[in-house]
């Protein structure tokens, strides 16, 4: 048996694959099957179409290469970044943005920490507000118009992998992008669909709906969705 395996590369490859798969499956499958993996929390909702557009830019620009979105349950982390991240907070992430590379700070709870003006200045030239920063500038985002004709398609795609977007949310996706980024149109309906969404012109240029608007809308939401008023952390000790 061993001799056959050693001398037949295809058999060896198949056997290796099976062995590694067992190791992987034993570790991963229970996490998908267990109810306790994702905490039950109030307030988590799928991303608004504008936030999602910002998230797509975040992924496109590779922000995750330097910024994680996961605050670990350690004292040094929570004293700097705030409450530790819950699994529930990334349950609508495809793909998740956890990461272990922190050239820059964790951004899991950056929402509301800075003003929109600050984010605008910081994205265009980080050194203008944080002199010691080594983050590259992204000035083109402030001038590039956001392409959002396909906003509904993004929502549909995510619903295929289990994000619970309603048909109403898909139908109003394009209108919701405009409402959130300009404060015009049916903002109340948008906020009913996406509670706590930050509304308004984000990048200080109301004439143009730019990629920077989407990016800041996304950043200002991060870490603010879960309602902790009735949350009992000791129920989710793990």
């Amino acid at each position: 048996m061993q001799e056959k395996m050693e001398k037949n590369v295809i058999l060896l490859a198949i056997a290796t694959l099976i062995t590694i798969s067992i190791g992987g499956l034993v570790q991963l499958v229970p996490l998908y099957a267990l109810d306790s993996t994702i905490e039950e929390v109030e307030g988590m909702r799928p991303y608004s179409p504008l936030e999602l557009a910002g998230r797509n830019i975040y992924v496109r620009e590779g922000c995750y290469l330097c910024h994680s979105q996961m605050i670990r349950p350690f004292r040094d982390e929570i004293e700097r970044y705030g409450k530790y991240s819950l699994a529930a907070e990334s349950m609508y992430d495809h793909p998740f943005q956890w990461g272990s590379k922190r050239t820059g700070p964790d951004v899991a709870r950056v929402g509301g920490k800075y003003s929109n003006d600050w984010h605008t200045a910081h994205m265009i030239n980080p050194r203008s507000v944080v002199p010691e920063s080594i983050m590259p500038g992204y000035p083109f985002m402030a001038t590039t118009e956001l392409s959002y004709d396909d906003a509904a398609e993004h929502l549909k795609t995510l619903s295929i992998v289990g994000v619970p977007y309603t048909s109403e949310q898909v139908a109003s996706a394009v209108a919701d992008v405009k409402a959130q980024a300009t404060g015009e149109g049916d903002v109340d309906a948008m906020l009913a669909r996406y509670p706590k969404a930050a509304v308004g012109d984000f990048d200080g240029n109301p004439d143009k709906l730019t990629e920077l608007d989407a990016m800041i809308a996304y950043l200002q939401m991060l870490g603010r969705l879960v309602d902790y008023t009735n949350y009992k952390p000791e129920m989710d000790y793990r």
């Binding site: 349950p73 929570i78 952390p233 000791e234 989710d236 793990r238």
Partner: peptide, 30 residues
């Protein structure tokens, strides 16, 4: 330590360890 999955959860282990629980103890001690 917590390890094996069961039908409705997982084995909690003999010393009832959890990283979040440890953090709470750590914070309380500080």
């Amino acid at each position: 330590y917590p390890a094996w999955p069961t039908l409705s959860g997982y084995t909690k282990g003999m010393i009832d360890y959890s990283s979040r629980g440890e953090l709470a103890k750590n914070l309380a001690a500080v």
